[in-house]
């Protein structure tokens, strides 16, 4: 079922790649180049899923996850971290921050779609 998905990544090219992968499944995509813009977008509308990078110039993506877990509207919104960080310590920090899942770049578009379907289906149950 089509969902509204917020992509947070400071790279315009990566946002375009993720958007291309997700719109192939008919999802509506909202883009933000940083944490501040992401929070502004979430103030404006409700989304079904957030996909965020970790290392961004304005703030850490894990800080975004922690912030969302403290906001009533996004407390249970699934958040996938999409990052070049592949270490187990970083994944543990992501889990502790409240992330739903951790995808290491480079990503396979089909694998991303598959993961998004699973996360959205789990949320619907």
């Amino acid at each position: 079922m089509p969902a509204t998905i917020l992509i947070v990544d400071d790279s315009k090219v990566v946002r375009g790649m993720v958007r291309g992968a997700l719109t192939a499944d008919d999802h509506r995509v909202v883009e933000a180049p940083g944490v501040r813009e992401a929070l502004a977008a979430l103030d404006a509308e409700t989304v079904d899923l957030v996909i965020t990078d970790v290392n961004m110039p304005d703030a850490d993506g894990l800080a975004l996850v922690r912030t969302l877990r403290g906001r009533p509207r996004e407390r249970f919104t699934p958040v996938l971290v999409l990052t070049t960080e592949g270490g187990e310590d970083m994944k543990r920090l992501g889990r502790e921050a409240g992330a739903t899942g951790w995808l290491v770049k480079p990503f396979d578009p089909e694998q991303l779609r598959h993961t998004v379907r699973r996360v959205l289906a789990a949320r619907a149950r």
């Binding site: 070049t84 592949g86 994944k91 992501g94 889990r95 992330a99 739903t100 899942g101 951790w102 995808l103 290491v104 770049k105 480079p106 990503f107 396979d108 694998q111 598959h114 993961t115 699973r118 996360v119 789990a122």
Partner: peptide
């Protein structure tokens, strides 16, 4: 490609 881990299910997909 990079790995995928879903924390709630504690598994790789």
């Amino acid at each position: 490609y990079g790995s995928v881990t879903l924390f709630d299910e504690n598994e790789r997909v």
